[in-house]
Design a protein around this nucleic acid. Structure first.
Lengths: 203, 203
DNA sequence: TTCATTTCTTAACTTAAGTGAACGAATTTA
DNA sequence: TAAATTCGTTCACTTAAGTTAAGAAATGAA
């Protein structure tokens, strides 16, 4: 189990055995049941999570409605805003499936960074990388229509469409569940008529 | 001019005079005319920018149409994706107004981080902070309607609405220029009728 | 200043998303 | 297993955004 975490880290830097020990020591492995809330609106926290198996999601509640803004699956880490801002969280983090995660305290900072500067390099590289990836996602979201967003997700994260309830996907795609349902029917219609047209071309 | 940059950095860490010297030495100050492209689609680059005065924007060209995804104004830095990914850029960076910027080479990395570990701390803190802020912006964008996004921008970045052409704002808000124009007219209508209703209540 | 180009607005029409409600299917709970 | 709840789909209707086109306003260049 610990190996998944170390594999992930090895994408950024290589660790000595001593350093791997530090990682192992500062992480707690935990299994979480589907539906569990790891963080609630209004709470503060100083821990971050890394998903070894399963799926987490973040969502806001606006006018009594859940608005899902992110999913985290295998080999993805979540640092709640409140850990960085030190303010109460605006959103919830909950478990979409039974999951195995690591919970690590963010206050390793100063001391560990001092003893093992490599960890600061790791954090910098990961932050820069995540920032760049997030920016690309944001750009794509901005310049796409809801339909393009859905098709894009279908291509890039087909697993999410299988493992996540539709109503959660809908707000993630920036629309209502009914609209997503209709959109899917529309796409199916189109591809059916394309199959028909394609068969005309064949003959 | 250099002071603006140092003021910005002081939001994250405090620097000794020697360290300020390093910053001063590794940054080139440059004035750029409105309309200039600092980076074009397909180009690679290893420099990042920091805006001292003026406004930069990033945009994609999709089917011959400009899609603006970000604006950078005073005290904001831009690290093009291609600097991190080392691949040709997917987008353009250009100058919305005559501007004064710093251009700094990203290859200070290893050597300077080694001599002045504080700079790695600076980069880590800035990346984490930017990541968190971008995430909040993305979340807000996701859970808002185009109209809410416009009102939100009006509140948070009223300067942008003044200094940036509408057609650039439109794609930034995820819509067509005509829709933005209509939306603005709609909002004005609403507020006019509210003023009218308000005056009824007064009497 | 004048002309040319770009940008913004308006309008009519089309397409798609929001809303409210109903219903069946799936899942959870007792 | 049965009842209750949650979830997904469909429908009719409303609202808003996309599209195409025309013209006014602002901007830039000669």
């Amino acid at each position: 189990m610990k190996q998944i975490l170390l594999d992930f880290i090895s994408k950024y830097i290589t660790l000595t055995e001593e350093e791997e020990g530090v990682i192992g020591g500062s992480n707690v492995f935990r299994t979480v049941k589907k539906g569990t809330n790891l963080l609630k609106h209004g709470q503060t926290s100083d821990v971050e999570y890394f998903v070894l198996k399963g799926c987490l999601r973040t969502y806001y509640v606006v006018d009594g409605e859940e608005k899902t803004t992110a999913f985290y699956t295998e080999m993805e880490g979540v640092t709640p805003h409140c850990v960085i801002s030190k303010k109460p969280s605006d959103y919830y983090i909950s478990c979409v499936e039974d999951s195995v995660i690591t919970v690590s305290n963010r206050d390793m900072d100063a001391e560990i960074f001092d003893k093992f500067p490599k960890f600061e390099t790791l954090c910098r590289l990961m932050s820069e990388d995540l920032f760049a990836k997030q920016q690309i996602s944001f750009d794509e979201f901005r310049i796409s229509s809801p339909e393009q967003r859905y098709l894009n997700l279908l291509e890039k994260r087909p697993d999410l469409i299988q493992r996540v309830p539709q109503y959660q996907l809908a707000s993630f795609l920036g629309m209502k569940p009914q609209s997503l349902s209709r959109l899917r029917a529309r796409i199916l219609d189109k591809s059916r008529s394309n199959v028909y047209l394609d068969s005309l071309i064949e003959n």
